[in-house]
Every structure is written in structure tokens, then in C-alpha cells.
Design a protein around this nucleic acid. Sequence first.
DNA 1: CACTTGACCTGTCCGC
DNA 2: TGCGGACAGGTCAAGT
Length: 290
Amino acid sequence: MPELPEVETVRIGLHKFIRGKKIVAVTYDTAKSFPNTEADVKQFLIGASIISVRRRAKVLVIELSSQYALVIHLKMTGQLVFKSRHQHFGAGHPSPSLVSQLPDKSTRVVFSFSDKSSLFFNDQRKFGWIRLLPSSEVATIDFFKKVGPEPLAADFRWQQFRDRLQRRAKSTIKAALLDQTVIAGIGNIYADESLWAAKIHPDQRVAKLSPRTIHKLFDEIIAVLKLAIANGGSTDRNYVNAEGKKGNYLKFAQVFRREGQLCSRCHKPIIKIRVAGRGTHICPVCQRIR
DNA sequence: CACTTGACCTGTCCGC
DNA sequence: TGCGGACAGGTCAAGT
């Protein structure tokens, strides 16, 4: 599931819902979901309060009063959903929400707070993970050491994007955008949307792109990510925010999952191809290889 | 080192 | 309706 806009949407929701709450219990299914020792959990998680929730790339970091942090990657199908104390089927609720049905069979970890509310980590495909680390060690995990700049950081410049792209000069531009060491947070949806907006074919080799084209792509990446965050991210299949609600961005998507529909610029059909081993959506007229 | 491919999992959809 | 295969929003390790 989640790319930068979805993870950011979850972050905003969690910050609002769980900041200040005290963890009184945690349950988890397997060591894969939560690869920490019971001793660590007892000492640094139980009894700790939530200080803040931040994001780097597609990873969430929940800072705790114990000077430890929960580091969370949702990968493809992870969800973090908050359930307040009184959330249940009520007479006034015509349809049962996802939240009221938790835990469900994809629930891997449950955090319980002192006010009887709880946070569920669900993950159908079990690729995601949560780790409890000393706050001072978070930045030292392999992924954070290698990951590229945040596209929405105030000091991110197109020249920096251009320079970082050169490490993948012989790759296709789509593979380069998906490479988290080049730029953080872009996944399959927003790669396709940004490339359409910039009129670049995803199979185009990076070395063939002009500075002007790279600058255009830089601008479109930022615009696409901002619009996606403003609309709560994209729900293709599993994604929900911290309230268990779906994102609305796919209403605005120009190519992703729109094969057969007409391109809004040239009115020719969108097609689906395979690039960098991923399903890829393009307008074959607007996006040509030069 | 740069680049590509398969593996990790479960669920769903599509064609026969 | 059943069954096999392809595919799904992300990273890694291992291969060339």
C-alpha cells in the first residue's frame, strides 16, 4: 500500500489520536511483525507515553517517553487504525465501519492505552514490521542511512534531484523514481502520475532526460504528492487512514488504474504496460520515448 | 558498483 | 462453481 501521501495521512491521524496516551499492554502475533524481546517490551514500551509521530520516507517513527521509538513500515498492505474507548455498533450507525470490526484476521499487533482506547496494526500480506529501538539508534538503521531526500522538504531543490538521478543514469526513469536512495517516498502510483504529468515515458533512460525535463518532473512530483496528501492519499485495495477510512486521491489520478479510459490531454486511451517489473500506466501519445 | 530479478505473504480476479 | 495462474501500492538479497 502506502507511499508517502498515505503514510503522511496516517501520521497526521495518529499524531492527533494517540499523542500523550500511555501504553499499558501490547499483543503481537509473531516475531516477524514485532521482532523485539519481551524484556525490551516490558522495560521500554509498557508504561511509556506517546510523545510524537513523525515520518521519514514511507516509515513512521513513534517517539516514546522511554527514549525509545516504535519504527513502523506498512509495506504493501499494512494499516494502523485507532479505536477509541466507545467505538462499537451503535443504533445511529447504519453500516459497521472497519474500526468496529477490529481486531480482524489481518491484525498482527494491538497496543492498548490507559484510557481503554487501542491501536491496531493490521497487515494482510505480513510484509510490514514494527521495531522498538532506542530513539538515538533510529537514524542508524540501514534504510535510513541510504534513503534519499524528502521531496516535500522546504530545502529540496531540482538540482539536487537532477544530481541524485545520475546514480541511476542507465536505468529507466521509472526504476529511478522507485529507488528510495534517489528520492524518498515515491511508489508505483505516484511514479506513474508524475511521469504522465511531466509527459515522460517510464521506459526513458535517465541519461537521456534534459535538465528542463528533469525540472518539470521535479515540479510535478511535488504537485502530485501535495494533491494526494490533501485528498487523504490513494486507496487502491487495502489502504485506510488512522480512522479506518479510505483515501480519495484516485478520483484525481490521470493514469493509475485507468487503462482503457481516455487521456484528459489528448483523449487517446490509457494503456497498461510493464516497466521495472511493475504494472505501469501511461498515455502512449503524450508519453513517448525520445 | 549499477542494474535486474525473485522472494517474502495472502487474497482476489480472470480465463478456462 | 472450481481451479490454476497472474497480479497487487515495497523493499531486500542474490544474481548478472
